[in-house]
């Protein structure tokens, strides 16, 4: 078993952080599944320290203007637009 407790409240909290609504059945189902899955992830506690030998380099390019999407193309998949802008939900 996991040493990480997962209950319905924890699932609701994470769902809120992730901006995903869940119905009550999903909350119960996920709580049970997360206990299993996180319990399995606990095996990572036994991983030894390893020297990382990656030689990582930044890949840079000049910051120059390139052809991109037109405004019309960029807006073409938006559910709502207004005056050439994306329109999000009304902030109450």
């Amino acid at each position: 078993m996991s040493d990480t407790p997962v209950d319905a409240d924890e699932v609701r909290h994470v769902a809120e952080l992730a901006r995903v609504d869940l119905d009550e059945d999903e909350v119960e189902e996920f709580a049970a599944q997360f206990a299993d899955i996180l319990g399995y992830f606990d095996a990572l506690d036994e991983v030894p320290e390893v020297d990382r030998e990656d030689e990582l380099v930044n890949v840079m390019r000049p910051d120059e203007v390139r052809e991109g999407l037109t405004q019309e193309e960029a807006l073409s998949n938006a559910a709502e637009t207004e005056d050439g802008y994306f329109k999000g939900p009304r902030v109450s």
Partner: peptide, 14 residues
């Protein structure tokens, strides 16, 4: 759901 994808058309707190 703003730039692409299903928005559902919900209003209120974003």
């Amino acid at each position: 759901g703003v730039r692409y994808g299903k928005s559902g058309g919900y209003d209120g707190n974003w």
